[in-house]
Amino acid sequence: MKKSSEKIIEKLLLSSALFTILTTLLIIAILLFETVKFFSEISIIDFFTDTEWTPLFDDKHFGILPLLSGTFLTSMVATLIALPVGLVIAIYLNEYSGNKFRKTIKPLLELLAAVPTVIYGFFALVIVTPFLQQFIPGLAGFSSLSAGIVMGIMIIPYVSSLSEDALFAVPKSLREASYGMGATKFQTVFKVTLPAASSGVIVAVILAISRAIGETMIVAIAAGQQPRLTLNPLVPVETITAYIVQVSLGDVPRESLEYTTIFAAGITLFIFTLILNNISFWLRNKFREKYD
């Protein structure tokens, strides 16, 4: 009796696993199918070299670069915020703070990642931007700066939590070796522990960046909807994700060329995050081997 019920459970687990894989494959298939349709009309060379993205206008251009630069810029600002802050938090919690403090602060930090992103977007638009405009006169109402800063706050726990795990994994024997040589705590942290944890920290940062690249709501609300090839963080831009939202919610006819652009944009985004995730996966395996 027991055997047959266990077999049913096994089958159920297997089918749910298969279902997930199938769904993923289906999504990729649809993405590819629509993308092929798109590239049958637009040259892939234009797609990567044209510096304008205006599929919804009369004078149509299909250059992905402006969307990529918008994505890059917002993620860059976010990383510049999240990397130092997250790292300092990780170092403080792991090397300096008491256990009690750490146990209370960690869940609070992780709460940052649990705030609905629409709230972050709203926060960027009505609080951060007006605040920054007092110091930065040229700052537009929508900008990659405000969106990036707020996104950076959102991804702090990704950086701090994974970096802390990496610091924690550094064997006690290395710290002892350092202290035994007469190193101070500060020297030990920055010359021994942090370098030894560096691959783990890099993994943390890559995962955080990939989260930032895929983030949609904050940039759709606060970064603007103006595809623009620029590295100026003070002006409105549009990210790939924000563009996809714009078209999905708009009144573009389903079968049109304009509509297939979101699949081409989507697959570009997908390839980027896939590469980043693979790098971090590869690094994580490499770094696991080192201490086992």
Binding site: A177, M181, G182, T184, Q187, K191, P195
Partner: peptide
């Protein structure tokens, strides 16, 4: 100075390992 039971070199070059104590001074 102290030498431990299990060899615990730093995950750095041979040079950097021996130079460590001097550099931190």
């Amino acid at each position: 100075g102290m030498v431990f039971q299990k060899p615990n070199p730093f995950p750095k070059s041979i040079y950097e390992n021996v130079a460590f104590g001097l550099k931190i001074q």
